[in-house]
Simulated scan of single mutants.
Amino acid sequence: MGKLAVATGAGLALSAGAAFGADVKLPNQISWTAYGTTSSGYAQSVGIGQMLKKNYGTGLRVIPGKNDVSRMVPLRSGQSPICACGVAAYMAAEGTHMFGTKKWGPMRLYSLFNNIGNTGFQLVVAGDAGIKTPADLKGKRVTWVKGAPALNINTAGVLAFGGLTWDDVKKVVVPGWKQSAEAVINGQADATFGSTVSGAYNKLAASPRGLFWTTFPHAEKEAWQRSIDRAPWRAPAMIKNAIDGKKNTSGNMPFEGSTQPYPIFVATSKASDDVGYGLTKAVMENFDQIKDAGPAMGGYQLSRQNLKWVFPIHPGAIKYYKEKGLWTDDVEKHHQANLKRQDVLAAAWKDYMGANKDKADEAFVKGWQAARVAALKKAGMGAPFPTWE
């Protein structure tokens, strides 16, 4: 378990001509998809783009997507081979939720590098709710956000740490994340999932309810395994950035919490080895130039990369990590296991589609849920979120 000039619009992902810069062979222009223009992920992409233009003469086009599916469409169509995504990229790789339909299925995605900072991603709870540990969530009101499976799976991971499931709490259904935070402030809910530095939590901290952060002790291995079984991307981290951070179970800063990378830079096989190598090296070795170029960019450091995570690594990025002496036998073994998992999922999808492509949509999805689980279990692999709505 590991610890953890820009323009918008469509266009060709890669154009001919290599940029300048020793050992880094990037085209004159690249593109990747990202969250919308008001997101921190977009702002971080802009900062990286400025560095690429200055150092290598490479222009970056950021293609903003309003949701998880729209960010993946350019990768599937070949318009762009790279995405600065959230954890929904894992669902795309697994072929689940919005990617578990006839139009999608499992995608082969490879990790380049990630932003793994000191910010936590976990539940914030109301200060007056009497919740000091994840187990204390039993019987409490927890938000469930419509159309946001990543948020809800993350919450399930927190509950699992405390030995709980959604059946052990009172589910408060809300239409969006903004309403999720407001529900806690207004007394309609007791806990919601998000970043420990989300601006909405300033309002909660200033409200009569106040806020509180439960810790996730890193020594509790069984609890962590339960959590990761539900949300495989979660990882322990020392949280240094949090609104009212000292209001946590330990009373200390930093505190033992939970995090996940954001953005997650993944690529398809259409990203060449030169691009995979060059982009990874350019970002990792120019951290000082990008660290203040956007919000929360402290995790773009080589020392923070988790090479034993949920995605196989892109061959170009592997070349760079090998040069830096980070590609150990253990990392290679983990990488091969991730590649095998993608092979199992691809074969299961091919077989299932061949026999069931004419099924009605709802029946097709339910059948794929069962087929996916069966294939993974037959291969001796875990099957997180065996069903979805």
Rank of each mutant, 00 (worst) to 15 (best):
W213K: 01
D136H: 00
T8F: 10
P134A: 02
G294V: 07
I185V: 14
P106S: 06
N286A: 14
G100E: 12
Y201L: 13
G354P: 04
G251I: 02
A235Q: 10
H334N: 12
I290G: 12
P27L: 04
G65D: 11
D128N: 13
G21L: 15
G354Y: 02
A267H: 06
A22G: 10
K350V: 02
S40A: 13
D329S: 10
Y90K: 06
P134R: 00
T96S: 11
S272T: 13
K247M: 07
K366D: 13
G299R: 05
T387F: 08
R304T: 09
V197R: 06
A271K: 04
L4Q: 02
N248R: 00
N115D: 06
G127T: 03
A43W: 01
G9W: 09
A379K: 03
G325H: 05
L279V: 05
N286K: 13
V169P: 07
K366W: 12
S272I: 05
C85A: 09
L12F: 08
V373S: 01
P208R: 08
D229L: 09
L112P: 07
S39K: 05
M91W: 14
W32K: 11
F385Q: 08
N55A: 12
I63Y: 12
K171C: 12
Y321H: 01
A219G: 15
P217L: 00
L345D: 04
I228C: 06
G299L: 12
Q305G: 11
A200N: 14
G176I: 07
F311N: 03
A183I: 14
I185D: 04
P74M: 03
F20I: 10
K178Q: 10
Y90W: 14
V266G: 05
F311R: 11
K366E: 13
Q44T: 03
N306G: 12
G117F: 10
A205R: 08
G139L: 04
A379Y: 05
A13W: 08
V174W: 04
A156I: 13
Q225E: 15
R141H: 03
D358G: 13
A84W: 02
V62F: 01
G257R: 00
G41F: 00
G298S: 06
R108W: 01
T96G: 05
S80R: 03
T249G: 00
G127P: 01
V174Y: 06
G176C: 11
T96R: 15
R71E: 09
K377H: 02
D229G: 06
A206I: 09
K138T: 06
I228K: 05
I131K: 01
N67G: 05
W349M: 06
T8W: 09
L279A: 03
K103A: 15
K170P: 04
Y42Q: 14
T101F: 10
F287W: 05
R234Q: 12
D292R: 10
W224T: 02
K3D: 11
S198F: 13
A183Y: 05
S227A: 15
N55W: 14
W144A: 04
A189K: 15
G367Q: 15
F161H: 05
F99S: 02
D273E: 13
A22I: 08
L75K: 05
I185E: 13
L211G: 04
L12I: 14
Q50Y: 06
Q188K: 15
Y321T: 01
W327T: 02
Y262M: 07
I116Y: 09
M297P: 00
N338E: 14
S80I: 02
Y352G: 06
K308R: 12
Q50D: 09
A231P: 07
Y201R: 09
S250R: 00
